[in-house]
């Protein structure tokens, strides 16, 4: 199998290269307020999703030091012979983070699909 042709990319190009002319994008950016509003809507949806999941992590993990400080008794609880804070921070924190990440990827991709289906809808 032949490998794809190599293209030479020099970093400076990123800075100097003008965006390639392309129709869909040109319509979206230059043409109308509608395109602008669509992109704004997508950005807002993605940001809201990210903030909501960040809030889940902040309440789930970020509240723990405060909880341990306010209610030291929680730190003394043992589950299966292991103190609860060790179990929470040493083990359960990681699957929790992965689960939040997984949910984000799913929903973020769905937001993009929605955006694409609106953009690609045949015009009047």
């Amino acid at each position: 199998m032949e490998s794809p042709r190599r293209t030479r990319i020099v970093l400076g190009e990123v800075a100097t290269r003008r965006p390639a002319p392309d129709r869909t994008r040109a319509e979206l950016t230059a043409q109308t307020a509608i395109g602008e509003a669509l992109v704004k809507g997508l950005v807002r949806a993605q940001l809201a999703l990210a903030l909501r999941l960040a809030l889940v992590v902040v309440t789930g993990l970020g509240a723990l030091p405060l909880l341990f400080a306010v209610a030291p008794a929680v730190g003394a609880v043992t589950v299966l012979g292991v103190n609860l804070p060790w179990l929470l921070l040493g083990v359960l924190a990681f699957p929790f983070l992965v689960a939040v990440g997984w949910a984000y990827v799913r929903w973020a991709e769905r937001n993009e699909q929605d955006f694409l289906s609106v953009v690609r809808r045949p015009g009047p």
């Binding site: 869909t24 994008r25 950016t29 992109v39 694409l116």
Partner: peptide, 16 residues
């Protein structure tokens, strides 16, 4: 800025 935000957030499949 409009074009930049578009570039940052819109899926690549929009770029022909």
């Amino acid at each position: 800025i409009g074009a930049t935000m578009m570039r940052l957030h819109a899926p690549e499949s929009l770029r022909l």
